[in-house]
Computed example of a mutant assay.
Amino acid sequence: MKIAILVREETMQRCTGKGCLNAFFQKKESFAGYEDEIELVTFTHAGGDIDHKIEMMRKNGVDAVHLSSCMRAKAANYESLAKRLAEYFDVVGYTHGAEEGKERAAIIIKKEG
Rank of each mutant, 00 (worst) to 15 (best):
M1E: 13
I3M: 12
I3Q: 13
L6N: 04
L6T: 06
L6M: 06
L6P: 02
R8W: 04
R8F: 06
E9P: 03
E10W: 02
E10P: 01
E10G: 10
T11E: 15
T11G: 09
M12T: 12
M12P: 04
Q13D: 15
Q13K: 15
Q13P: 04
Q13H: 14
C15W: 01
T16D: 03
T16W: 03
G17R: 01
G17Q: 08
G17W: 07
K18S: 13
K18R: 10
K18F: 15
G19R: 02
C20D: 15
C20P: 11
L21K: 11
L21I: 05
N22A: 13
N22F: 11
N22D: 15
A23C: 04
A23Y: 01
A23F: 01
F25L: 02
F25Y: 14
Q26H: 12
Q26I: 06
K27R: 14
K27L: 05
K27S: 09
K28Y: 00
F31Q: 06
F31I: 07
A32I: 01
A32E: 10
E35M: 05
D36E: 15
D36H: 08
D36M: 03
D36G: 11
D36T: 08
D36L: 02
E37H: 11
I38D: 10
L40Y: 01
T42A: 08
T42S: 03
F43I: 01
T44Q: 14
H45E: 11
H45G: 12
A46P: 07
G48D: 01
D49K: 13
I50W: 04
I50N: 09
D51H: 12
D51S: 12
K53N: 09
M56S: 10
M57E: 05
N60A: 13
G61W: 08
V62I: 00
V62H: 00
V62Y: 00
V62L: 00
A64D: 08
A64S: 14
V65L: 05
L67N: 07
L67Y: 05
L67F: 05
S68Q: 00
A73G: 10
K74D: 14
A75G: 03
A75N: 09
A76S: 10
N77M: 12
N77G: 08
Y78M: 03
Y78R: 07
E79V: 10
S80I: 13
S80R: 14
S80C: 07
L81D: 07
A82I: 03
A82C: 02
K83N: 12
K83R: 14
L85H: 06
A86N: 13
A86D: 04
A86P: 04
E87I: 11
Y88D: 15
D90H: 10
D90F: 01
V91Q: 09
V91T: 07
V92Q: 06
Y94Q: 03
T95W: 00
H96P: 11
H96L: 02
E99Q: 07
E99A: 09
G101V: 10
K102P: 13
E103A: 13
E103K: 15
E103M: 11
R104K: 14
R104W: 04
R104M: 05
R104N: 08
A105C: 13
A106G: 05
A106I: 11
I107M: 06
I108M: 15
I109K: 13
I109N: 09
K110C: 09
K110P: 03
K110F: 06
E112L: 15
E112I: 15
E112W: 11
G113W: 05
G113Q: 06
G113E: 09
